[in-house]
């Protein structure tokens, strides 16, 4: 996409950055609504996540007296990393403002940085529950990372580019449909794992012994919990966007229209996540690595097929 004038460029960067920030909490709301509808309830309104965040921002911050500054760093780094990721990845059909050869790896490592600090913050409280969640988080990430890299390799193969802008906005061509679909399925599993969704994790349960992400933030409260929730909704949006880019949403030349299209597609994906969450049971924890490994193998085979 070519920008002729500086104001236009600034406008497009501003939209690229601000629109996702504004709409991110909508998607957990959509998922909850779908789940409620499937269960025959009316469910909370779509704006509930926004209300939650605003309410939490006004609450008292209760800090465990064993903690250090790392406890603050966890949620803040998580939000910061997601904001940085947002500037690196094309969203919908709008290209990322920051791009260079190898930003793929920065993208992956920003997720790792967020993971380092959130799990450290969990260990900082000295609670065995949170330690448990942190251990699961870092362990499962090992397997799901392989799926992510294989998927990105597929796109590197098809686009011959090393920057997220060129490789994720690459058009379909002959022979690329199969591997791209396989990668998209692999990434969808990655999404479910990274955003703590059924069948990997259950965001609703209050059984500490079975949770992964949610159990790590048991001690966060007030504004810090708001940061945690905002970070996780941003993460959901970014990963939905990533999956959509692999399937290749229809591009339109008009920015506003393509943003509308993107929001529609992302909502559809959120609905799909909600449906999966309603119809499936949580996997036993010991089977989670198998599922993630299957996703990695799927993307890996896609990569081999892409080499043809």
């Amino acid at each position: 996409m070519l920008h002729t004038t500086t104001p236009q460029l600034i406008l497009s960067i501003a939209t690229h950055f601000l629109v996702p920030l504004a709409i991110a909490p909508l998607f957990p709301g959509i998922i909850n609504k779908v789940k409620a509808a499937m269960a025959g309830r009316r469910g909370p309104p779509l704006r509930q996540p926004y209300l939650d965040i605003f309410k939490l921002l006004r609450k008292t911050l209760v800090i465990s007296n064993t903690t250090t500054w790392i406890f603050f760093a966890g949620p803040l780094v998580a939000v910061g990393a997601m904001l940085a990721v947002e500037l690196l990845i094309p969203i919908g059909s709008s290209p990322a403002p920051i791009h260079f050869a190898g930003d793929v790896i920065l993208f992956v490592y920003l997720f790792a940085a967020a993971r380092f600090f959130t799990t450290s913050a969990a260990l900082d409280t000295g609670s065995s529950f949170e330690g448990m969640g942190a251990a699961r988080e870092v362990s499962f990430a090992v397997v799901s990372e392989a799926a992510l890299i294989f998927s990105l390799l597929i796109m590197i193969r098809f686009s011959s580019g090393l920057s997220l802008n060129t490789l994720l906005l690459a058009p379909f061509k002959q022979g690329s449909v199969g591997p791209r679909l396989m990668a998209a399925v692999g990434l969808f599993v990655f999404l479910l794992a990274e955003t703590s969704r059924v069948p990997v994790d259950d965001p609703d349960t209050h059984l500490e012994l079975t949770m992964i992400h949610e159990v790590m933030v048991l001690d966060h409260s007030g504004p810090l919990l708001a940061a945690v929730q905002y970070a996780s909704s941003l993460r959901l949006l970014i990963l939905i966007n990533l999956v959509l880019l692999f399937i290749g949403p229809p591009h339109t030349g008009i920015p506003i229209l393509s943003w509308v299209l993107f929001i529609l597609e992302a909502s559809a994906t959120a609905v799909l996540v909600g449906i999966i969450e309603s119809v499936m049971a949580r996997l036993p924890l010991r089977h989670v690595p198998t599922l993630l490994a299957a996703a990695a193998v799927l993307s890996g085979l896609g990569f081999i097929l892409a080499l043809r």
Partner: peptide, 13 residues
């Protein structure tokens, strides 16, 4: 599964 995947990859290559 990994052995199977490796075998499949080898066959494909």
């Amino acid at each position: 599964m990994l052995i199977g995947a490796a075998g499949t990859a080898a066959a494909l290559m």
